[in-house]
């Protein structure tokens, strides 16, 4: 049985501000760590061991942490399912890895492109990492959009959820560039019995505005 799609839970990380928020509540905070150290600290403090984490680039680490905290805190991990989509939106793709890869091929005398780094230049790799971690065999999709845009998020949410193959979705905005790394991920479900607020452009905007204004 299906019902109107509801936001079950959401996680937010601003690595620059060193904060982690789950469902509006600040659950973790440090001070003065750079984004890489902060993300490692979050991983070590709040997440189960997954050594592959260290191999990921900043963009992917951010998405991975958002998904881990979201699935764990909501008690909705449901490993091995086919009807959960993963949709991620970002603006700058994986710029940090792009710059690293470009630098590694620019100089003939020092030409050592790293295959691992190249893989992370693909902005959809984060969806693959989350799927591999949880054995989600359903839809994965990655979009490029200029900013967090609740109207756009609602549209791409609809695009995935109209498909009867999908009953829940991890919907996310992840952006990392230079010294910033900020992202939000929602778990939204149309399965019966799930509690939460109905998804709407307004709700997606309200949540974001609250997070941004809560300094």
């Amino acid at each position: 049985m299906k019902q109107e799609s509801k936001i079950i839970s959401y996680t937010y990380i601003d690595a620059e501000r060193n904060i982690v928020v789950i469902n509006g509540e600040k659950v973790f905070e440090t001070e003065n760590l750079d984004i890489k150290d902060f993300l490692t600290k979050v991983y070590k403090t709040l997440c189960d061991s997954y050594p592959k984490f260290y191999k990921m680039d900043i963009h992917c680490k951010l998405g991975y942490l958002l998904s881990e905290l979201l699935l764990e805190s909501s008690g909705n991990r449901q490993k091995g399912i086919e009807d959960r989509a993963i949709a991620v939106v970002n603006s700058s793709s994986s710029l940090c890895s792009d710059i690293k890869h470009q630098a590694s091929i620019e100089d003939n005398g020092n030409y050592f492109p790293s295959p691992a780094n190249f893989v992370y230049t693909l902005s959809n790799i984060v969806t693959g990492e989350i799927a591999i971690r949880n054995k989600y065999y359903g839809e994965t999709i990655s979009y490029i959009h200029s900013s967090y845009d609740s109207k756009y998020l609602k549209e791409i949410f609809d695009l995935s959820m109209v498909d009867e193959c999908n009953n829940s979705i991890l919907l996310s905005w992840i952006e990392s560039i230079d010294t910033t790394a900020e992202g939000i991920m929602f778990l939204i479900s149309k399965e019966e019995g799930k509690e939460g607020v109905n998804v709407s452009e307004k709700e997606l905007d309200n949540i974001w505005q609250k997070l941004k204004n809560n300094k």
Binding site: P51, K52, F112, P113, S114, P115, A116, V119
Partner: peptide, 17 residues
């Protein structure tokens, strides 16, 4: 160590470098 095919490629880079 839980290494995979990408790690093997990284080791090839390491050997050359």
């Amino acid at each position: 160590l839980g290494l995979d095919s990408i790690d093997a490629l990284e080791l090839i880079v390491l050997l050359e470098k």
